[in-house]
Amino acid sequence: MKKIFVFLLLTRCFTSSSYAQNVNTILQKVKDKLNLVNDYEASGEMKTKVVFLKVPVASVKIYYKKPDKLKIKNEKGISFIPKGAVSININNVLTNNAFTILDGGIAKLGNTNVRVIKLLPEDDPDSYRDDVVLSTLYIDDNFLILKAKTTTKDNGTYELEMSYGKYAGYGLPDKVIFTFNTKDYKIPKGVTFDYSEDQKKAPDKTKARKGTIQITYKTYLINKGLSDAVFK
């Protein structure tokens, strides 16, 4: 009983201290951390999980440069990168300053308490992000974004889940899971001539049409100065 009381008390203290902070302050602290990074070149492994896409695990390099340049390259082969994958770098979600910031309260991600902040972009026709309707961020006590949800006008909802390790000081994750909406894969009729020993089965349409890519970062080279040519 005593133990439970202590636990509840601690929880209360923790949440209240977190809650006490202004969402703007929290967001600023997150940004400050991220602003430490001008550019990076990261290498890692990318796993793609899409119902109709069977691809190998790819060794990729991810290049980032302020304010919103991002490139994923598969040096050895081909990779299908989901549209909107630029937001795997959270900077790209936050660069647009013209937000309306809403406090979404406190929530729990697994066992971790997080602060929910919603961003409503103000109209900015010049930005590539004008597609975005709403971004929701789940920020932990260390001002690290654990999860981000972006709802777009045309491309459905992207979800980003991140876990941190060595590079937490820069706000850079060790692992990112990017979830995106997929459309049905169709091929023009009569062009495949498949070998059909395996009974052809149309994919289950009731299944959620979502795909993920999961990037596990191995190394980051931070602020070494990247030329713009990399992003072309």
Binding site: F52, L53, K54, P56, K76, G77, I78, T192, D194, P203
Partner: peptide, 15 residues
């Protein structure tokens, strides 16, 4: 480069 095969219901990529 890697070979991408289009089947009727799936896309395969071979290194």
């Amino acid at each position: 480069n890697d070979l991408v095969i289009s089947k009727e219901f799936e896309l395969l990529q071979i290194e």
